[in-house]
Nucleic acid binder design. Sequence first.
DNA 1: TCAAGTTGTGTAACTAGTTACATTCAAATT
DNA 2: AATTTGAATGTAACTAGTTACACAACTTGA
Lengths: 335, 335
Amino acid sequence: MKRIEAKKRSNLRDVAKAAGVSVATVSRVLNSPDSVNEQTRKKVQQKIDELKFVPSAAARAINSGRSRFVGALVPTLDNAIFARFLNSLEQGLGTHRLSLIVATTDSDPEKESQKARELLDIGAEGLVVSGVTHDPDFHALLRQRRTPTIATSFYDPNHYLPTVGYDNASAAQIAINHLRDLGHTRIAIIYASQKNNDRTIARLNGIKAIEEGLELSYFETEMSQSGGASAALEICKNPRLPSAVFCLSDVLATGALFGLQSQHLKVPDDISLMGLDDLPGSAVIFPSLSTVHLPVSRMGSITANALADWVERGKIPSSTLLSARLVERGSTKRA
Amino acid sequence: MKRIEAKKRSNLRDVAKAAGVSVATVSRVLNSPDSVNEQTRKKVQQKIDELKFVPSAAARAINSGRSRFVGALVPTLDNAIFARFLNSLEQGLGTHRLSLIVATTDSDPEKESQKARELLDIGAEGLVVSGVTHDPDFHALLRQRRTPTIATSFYDPNHYLPTVGYDNASAAQIAINHLRDLGHTRIAIIYASQKNNDRTIARLNGIKAIEEGLELSYFETEMSQSGGASAALEICKNPRLPSAVFCLSDVLATGALFGLQSQHLKVPDDISLMGLDDLPGSAVIFPSLSTVHLPVSRMGSITANALADWVERGKIPSSTLLSARLVERGSTKRA
DNA sequence: TCAAGTTGTGTAACTAGTTACATTCAAATT
DNA sequence: AATTTGAATGTAACTAGTTACACAACTTGA
């Protein structure tokens, strides 16, 4: 009679029995093979291979109290800036033998809070979030659990969480000052309103702080290239065109470029265009995009190291300010 | 004397002791609250809240044999096509209460194999990979562990793994046939060589199969917009220009567009340009990019559902063919 | 009034590992 | 020859949950 039964994974005890040794010895072969006699080790190893034994991570986690993974909460993966950040974050964590669980929030604070709770419930040892503005539940959760958590894309040394990011206000000011230096005073600003997006708010506030002597107009759109394109069309409707357009992100700027071109406006001859982010593609569009470089890859690796230090050695990191810098390319020229 | 000690998470036994009940009762309050007397339940719940008790996922996993996460191995997150796929994969898995661990491979089969092993070692219940060509170790690993695994971006009903993807050969043929229909016979092809990239190889083979009557030239470059741009410059060096350029990915095509523009070639008047992927940005560049749409978001959700079914109910999915379709936009016109 | 059934709870044995401590045995030292 | 030392291994108690089974207390029916 053939017994139909799921061949359950073999465990330590199975291997121990098969090899005629104790469970402790098998465990030693796994974790400190030097402390086991050559012959015994070989015999055990052979049985391990024979039985295709793989130690259970859950059982290990239960003993060590370590799960060896952290969670990252990002608004979306469908934007190169977050994808690039996660790319380097994942690589950085890998050097510390930590895995990364990704959760997307759609920029919805409630969803973020809920996903954060799920991540912690399944044993995440640390979290990475974007920005410092979150759901009250989320803050309460972090305060309660005391899980190592780093807020990114936003530098704020006074925040209760360590932050790794840039000064969004001054990043925007770098762009505005560049345009001002080139003699532009009538500037259209395109930004994407995502509710609770503190990065955008900080950038807008940075602009407000230095708007003296400038004639600014604001265009709100959605965060996508087509959003940028349609905002550009909106700008073109105005009979008195601005001499420059500043987009608060490169995605918007790339879209705006095509919007302007579709209206037969030449960039930068007819109108200057600036972005903010410096995506890989921004250097190769035509004309190449003047922008403000945000070091997201560095942010990823710094965050990875800081979080690993916190998780593994309890070392609470201090906030890190990454400097944004002007990247002057072909889309801006003297007014 | 203040004792400095890590307040370790409270566990079932702590709660049981505090509430004056047995561990079984606390466990019941957690898992089948109806089977516990109202008063007892309230008392226990209060202690759970007081002690901020959260059940350990590892301990649960050890009993259920479930870790509730799967791993995805992608070449990089720094390409919209994979990021979009993961975005919908993650969302799809979320509806099945499965988490997603992301691992990047840099298109290196050895790295992929190693990361796959790591994922399985930490208890991944399933895997998602790109393409069907992998390291021998990787195949051996999958055969040994029998972990539910789905190969994506590549449809092959005869593969030993279920595949969810499109027919890359015919996707490329759709593009070539479109150009041929428009009267183009001299076509330059730009492709990115990533060693072992079966998607690219399949696309090239698809072209080979229908090259009769065409005059094709091939340009190999790296997978980035700047790679596309420099390949375009290479094309322009030829005194007898092709009438159309076909890039095997939209990232390359966007780069090629800027490369052609920088040489003062008008697309599509002087030269037609086609991509393959259909990224969100491809519709808004100017001129908008004619391309072949690959349904990566659908691929993500289908993969998520298929993998969840396999993991949760042992239902091995059959391969799914997703159809690519022509997207005719502004970058191609009659020769 | 006694048996049977229901409800609620506890005991202890599981899940799969790690590890402190004990033990054995042989080699080296006194 | 007796003692010390060290290597190699085993025993059993941990980690944090779940759950089969036992049992008490109460209700219900004959």
